[in-house]
Design a protein around this nucleic acid. Sequence first.
DNA 1: TTGAGTACTTACCAAAAGGTGCATACTTGT
DNA 2: ACAAGTATGCACCTTTTGGTAAGTACTCAA
Lengths: 112, 112
Amino acid sequence: MRVVSGKWKPLILYFVAQGGPTRYGELRRAVRDVSDKVLIQQLKELEADGLVKRTDYKEVPPRVDYSLTPLGHSLAQALVPLCTWGTEHMAEVSRVFAERATWTRRGRQSTG
Amino acid sequence: MRVVSGKWKPLILYFVAQGGPTRYGELRRAVRDVSDKVLIQQLKELEADGLVKRTDYKEVPPRVDYSLTPLGHSLAQALVPLCTWGTEHMAEVSRVFAERATWTRRGRQSTG
DNA sequence: TTGAGTACTTACCAAAAGGTGCATACTTGT
DNA sequence: ACAAGTATGCACCTTTTGGTAAGTACTCAA
């Protein structure tokens, strides 16, 4: 749980798993709404945990890409059923979530 | 991801899945190291998300138990591979983690 | 010379998450 | 009378997480 917890980590794993080695800029555009700081941060953590590999081509202008390690691949596999669950039950889950979001703003409910 | 994120939620799901309807006190002792406040809080969220069902027997002294809804069961299923992954790669992952925990305290590394 | 693109880093800030300790209302055991 | 067990609630605080805005060193195009 510790390794995947991070607002954007599952999404990062998803994109890197899909596209093979992925450049930083591509990830940045793919993930959308993530800031540089956080994206870098999560990539560093994934790298430190041995899930992704960072390759620096030492070119100028800079070129770097990220790919999954074998460990990362196995994790991506293990996440598939969860991803499927999310997709299948998205409607069900986000419906109750939407309801909550409504009354959460103005006080407690009175569901007797 | 939103539904399972919470320091103790996976563990709660695990215990409730294992033992069938589980009383609050049992959970409390099973999960260990969780505070009342947080345990209750996570249970309420799981309930609000439709994953667990709370049954209050209206007795005195109070008796309440928690069980999985069908949705909760399906989620527990989807978590199995991830759990397995965690178990299988625990050594690998926690080794790098331990190393990091060491130098993280005294400054950056210089892995050239 | 200005602007855009590359892959980051840093300082600062806000929100979320989790933890501690105390309170409740009632019963059972000593 | 007093402590312990039952399932919570509340006020307060710390830690963790994520976000914003700016800066870096360098190249290419206008």
